[in-house]
Amino acid sequence: MFLDPRILIMFGANALLLYLSLLVNSALSSWSLYLVLLGPMLVLPAIFLRHRSYLLCILLTGLWVDAALPCQFGLLTLGFLTAGACIFQIRFRFRAEHNYHPIILSHSCNLFCIALISIATGFEYLSASSLWIQILITTVLSHGLLTIVAPWFFDLQRLLFELCRLETEPEDFPIL
């Protein structure tokens, strides 16, 4: 098949995760708390899909996230493609059938996204201590929650593959 139908499920799951995280952020605003849960979005596409499908999925997810967040349009698309390319390069080293490796990857990608947003959006205020305190709180909270959210998210995607009678294993290795 020219494109993997799992793109739709992965993109849909990513949109759902973003929607839920923004809903939670909206509710947490009175405590000035914020969550960044972007890391898990690019892990399974980079491990499971062939290059063409992976690229389309990541591109769509990146543009979707960029449109939803008030950062510069294209920033997270670029960030997702960069992080995705790194994972794609060494994806044969990861065990995709269990959650252990994807969770570690999602934490790394999430940290990368937080760093990217901080540099791109808060660069002129980097000297402000309050910015660092906020970023630290956001990072700790996000990664704390990610330990629960990431396994749920990956299991949800695998469950949807099963329900739609699609392949639940990654494409053949090495890279095709």
């Binding site: 923004l22 952020n25 909206s26 605003s29 914020y34 008030p70 901080s118 910015l131």
Partner: peptide, 11 residues
């Protein structure tokens, strides 16, 4: 409908 209040943006 939505509040985005973080270290990076306040919208």
């Amino acid at each position: 409908v939505r509040r985005d209040l973080s270290a990076w943006w306040q919208q």
